[in-house]
Amino acid sequence: MATTDNEFITRDDADGIAWITIDRPKKLNALSTAVMGELSAVLSAAEADPTVKVVVLQGVEKAFSVGYDIAEEVELGVSTAEQWHAGLSNNVGLTMQVWELSKPVIGAVSGWCLAGGCELAMACDMLIATEDAQFGEPEIRFGSGPVTLIMPFVLGQKKTNELLYTGDIIDAPTALDLGLVNKVVPADQLQATVQKLARKVALTPLPILRYTKMALNRAYEAMGLRDAVKANLDIAAVLNSAYTEERREFTELVAGKGLGAALAWRDERYAAVED
């Protein structure tokens, strides 16, 4: 059994499986700078640990993660393309660390799985979701966009276009139909289902798992995944620094009244056109 003394990330090991948990429930496991730093360090430790064959990544309570900490970005005053590029590079780096981890990563998703949190989940090798899980990248609704452009390689062109243009959120059964997740289970069966899958994978010797993951990743990278992620990083920095009245109002609401008020304003704008 291994645990960490971090503030936001815990690790528990059993049977060759490292269970890594994002534990920031008051912020729905939002990915602040501190959370990302701790998570990266714990992932690196699991990577280097010869007793670990499979990694499980999960959140606590109502969310896997709602994505990058918008309130922190506003507080830091990130505005220029150069500033955005530096910050987004860290975000991309964390997601790609999950993608590149030499050991299989299983995502256990319950509740909200949005924006950068959704990208982190898509970087996992397999996903098990609860019936109440919700997936999406709603960034366009407040003048932003995807950071790590993985979705086209997971869902294909047309559905990716729809989700990224509209910012729509999909439920777990839809995510299953689209191939975003491997299985949907009741909430009280999530841990047992993930554990059973992880134990099955862990029966394979670690060198075989490493080379199998390498082959699978290289197949997607041959399709252009890594080039797409790098190209999008440069575009995302410019996109996030572009001025629009909507982005200005959203940012001012976050700074003056809090993120909840800004999100309520965003949702009200789209309420009339929701299904």
Rank of each mutant, 00 (worst) to 15 (best):
G37L: 02
E38W: 00
W19E: 09
T33R: 13
W19Q: 07
I22G: 02
D49P: 00
R24Q: 01
L39I: 04
M36Q: 15
L43M: 12
A34Y: 01
A30D: 10
D12E: 15
S40A: 14
A48C: 09
A14M: 10
L31N: 08
N29C: 12
K27A: 11
D13I: 15
I17W: 01
A18T: 03
G37N: 02
V42T: 13
V42S: 05
S40H: 14
A48W: 08
A34H: 12
D23C: 14
E38R: 03
G16N: 08
K27Y: 11
A46F: 09
V42L: 04
T21D: 00
S40V: 08
V35Q: 04
G16K: 06
T33P: 02
S44A: 14
N29D: 07
R24G: 06
G37M: 03
L43A: 08
A46S: 11
L39D: 01
A45V: 12
P25H: 04
L39Y: 07
A34K: 09
I20S: 13
L43V: 13
A45G: 14
S44D: 13
D49L: 00
G37S: 00
D12M: 09
E47K: 13
T21R: 15
K27H: 10
D49T: 00
W19I: 12
K27D: 12
A41T: 14
A46C: 05
N29E: 13
D23E: 13
L31K: 03
G37K: 06
W19R: 15
D13P: 07
A48T: 02
A18P: 08
D15M: 02
L39E: 01
A46N: 06
K26F: 06
G37A: 02
G37P: 04
L39G: 04
